[in-house]
Design a protein around this nucleic acid. Structure first.
Lengths: 127, 127
DNA sequence: TCCTTTTACGCCACACGTAATCATC
DNA sequence: GATGATTACGTGTGGCGTAAAAGGA
């Protein structure tokens, strides 16, 4: 049960998107990489997290529980990053992105995922 | 700023032990591996986390902040594992270890670290 | 027959440990 | 000199993407 931040981020993306295909894209992973990660999560936890169906996936009860905790942990990690950022000495840069709610939810993730992967030294602060 | 669970676990071990040498052992890592991880954490965060001194290390202000959040996140992750464990289908096993407080703090970490690394399918529940 | 997921496969990078070096008291 | 941290370096593997196969309504 590793559940590193990438696992949690991917799982939430898949939960939100309703399919591994779109969730993988939102998380900046290829579809097979995402499928493998999710499979490993289920295997290592000994529990099914997703019900695979024709039009994507749905969360099992355990999946819902995981999503709940994953959201809490993500929030906590964001707070950690934020507080740590206040001590930063300028090596790091933060880029604030402004967008309305619809654009944020529908367009930003897939647009930014790849870019963020290519620019790890820059934190994105979506407001 | 990756800060995966291993990073957090290591940092807390180092914070508790007061030296990278002993913290690395408690976290089940070699000293150089731990040193590199900590250095990368400081580099990627753009902030010093540890003051290196003659007899080990001390946390900077930023380090204290990180330790605080790391403890919260670790707790949250433990709760997540616990709840997920209730859904598990028997593939995984949990081993409960009983020890008094002093032994828990002083002896258990270094004894168990290696063993846990070699037995990833077993969760240790230290009570 | 599509749309989604899984499996196969080769590759590269990263994280590790051993060993050597540096620093500080 | 002893203790603790860092640097150097070679190695193995874990996670990735491309491509091909399988499954379901």
């Amino acid at each position: 049960m590793r559940f590193d931040p990438t696992d949690l981020r991917l799982f939430l993306a898949v939960a939100d998107a309703g399919s591994i295909t779109h969730g993988a894209a939102d998380a900046g992973l290829s579809l097979p990489a995402a499928s493998e990660r999710l499979g490993d999560m289920e295997l290592s936890g000994g529990v099914r997290l997703l019900d695979r169906g024709r039009r994507g996936v749905a969360l099992t009860e355990a999946g819902e529980a995981l999503a709940h905790h994953a959201r809490l942990i993500s929030r906590q990690m964001a707070m950690m990053r934020g507080e740590l950022g206040e001590y930063a000495t300028g090596l790091r840069s933060t880029l604030r992105v402004l967008a309305n709610t619809a654009a944020m939810a529908e367009l930003m993730p897939q647009r930014l995922a790849g870019w963020m992967g290519a620019n790890p030294r820059v934190d994105l602060d979506l407001k």
